[in-house]
Design a protein around this nucleic acid. Structure first.
Lengths: 249, 249
DNA sequence: TCAACTACGTAAACGGTGTTCACTCACCTG
DNA sequence: CAGGTGAGTGAACACCGTTTACGTAGTTGA
């Protein structure tokens, strides 16, 4: 049955174990506690053995960040599974709330993936596309693309997009189109106007900004219950896109 | 003249030296390079001597963060000095652009102060008010308060502030009032409606979000020139507050 | 079947880290 | 000038990432 040799199976198992223990150390004691020796101790091997799996500690952390992106994407996908496929605004709520919930529950992972300088970690997408963690980005882009395409948009949406950003926005528009089409929904550029693409970008700024401020405790005053504030922001973002009367699931 | 004894003068000088060298290490090689032994080497003492000045490495980093806040505030104050005292929108541009410029020029310091979990660093304000770095916050709050007070605001500004946030907003309103009044401008709560206070909070979310995304390279696509995007966001924030036709200095 | 090869894991070592401890000695105070 | 205080030291401890040489179990081909 299994094509893999015994050695390959053992190796795969050890590698899973390494990542699991590294992840546990990150979650419980922070990035600095993700130590080659500590991981090895938990796995039951010695530290130099880890060099058979990773080039360096930095390399291990990079792979860890990729795993985190993948798991986050899976979590958000699971959230989306329970939602009506045609109710795009509910999908937006689910993904954004899921992102916030995940970030607050896993601040160390959030910091590693979403608040590390590129030279300290390297991008999640080593092909240099400069995207947010690829798997996570896929989920977000998918919902964003469907959101734009599903609804007649206000005419002046994103009218203030700077002109010299048009080329970048056009490139992003293509990525959005490709992401949506990958899911079998056929749309073309005409339903994804650049103004709307710009608005999506601005929305990501706000969503990320709120979540990061909450995780890092850097709001200008003590917010006793930030959740309604987040929901209110989502409602405003959707409202600006023309979703005036919407349910807040 | 100098009340201080010789010993006290030497101590103060050494402490300044320690912080200067620690700061240089942070700027040039990142947080992990801020090593007690490296600092001591630069200062010309041994590592254990640093324990006469700080309880631990963590304590030193906390003090460093406070210094950074103070210096950033001084830099922004200097930016404000060159601006007409009555042109509040120009002041907003100056402070926000100054913050962005500083963050991009000092990513390591930005990460330490604005993108560290509280348990990894402790708040800049040890009195637990949960504010952004106190000195920096003062400058921002001052401009924000004057911005609100200086202008007739749209009636529906911040109409979507969640109800259960009113208590927090009222507290922040008092802080804003106190900050503005400290500068000798007498205003009362009537010119600082809660809706406007909420809008200020949302604006901080956007400004912080943009800057952090740029520093960490986590925009959803490669932005070849983010500066006009930032300026455009500022224009929109001011526009929502009623500054329809404004110069962009 | 058996020799040759591959790759996982090891112990030892190097230079680095934060931190503690006992100690010296210049400085300040009475 | 005696006594106390506090800045700084060197040695030590337990860690850390990484490299090296080496043993050995698993695999492969003749």
């Amino acid at each position: 049955m299994t094509e893999a040799t015994r050695r390959e199976r053992l190796r795969a198992e050890t590698e899973r174990d390494i990542r699991r223990q590294a992840r546990a150390l990150l979650v419980e004691h922070g990035r600095d506690a993700v130590t080659l020796r500590a991981i090895a101790r938990e796995v039951g091997i010695t530290a130099p053995a880890l060099y058979r799996y990773y080039d360096s500690r930095e390399d291990l952390l990079r792979r860890l960040a990729e795993d985190i992106c993948t798991d986050l994407a899976a979590e958000l996908d699971a959230d989306l599974d329970g939602i009506d496929e045609d109710d795009v605004s509910a999908q937006v709520y689910a993904v954004c709330r899921g992102f916030r919930r995940w970030a607050l529950a896993h601040p160390q992972e959030f910091t590693l993936v979403f608040a590390s300088t590129e030279d300290a970690l390297g991008s999640c997408t080593p092909d240099g596309r400069g995207q947010v963690g690829d798997q996570f980005g896929r989920v977000f882009l998918e919902v964003a693309g469907r959101l734009i395409a599903s609804h007649p948009l206000p005419e002046d949406l994103g009218h203030d997009a700077p002109e010299n950003l048009h080329a970048d926005l056009a490139a992003f528009q293509q990525v959005l189109l490709a992401t949506v089409n990958d899911r079998g929904v056929a749309v073309d550029a005409s339903v994804l106007p650049l103004g709307a693409v710009y608005h999506i970008t601005q929305s990501w700024v706000r969503i990320y900004g709120h979540v990061a401020l909450e995780v890092f405790g850097r709001f200008p005053f003590a917010v006793s219950n930030p959740e309604p504030m987040f929901d209110s922001m989502l409602a405003q973002i959707l409202g600006e896109m023309g979703f005036r009367h919407l349910t807040r699931p």
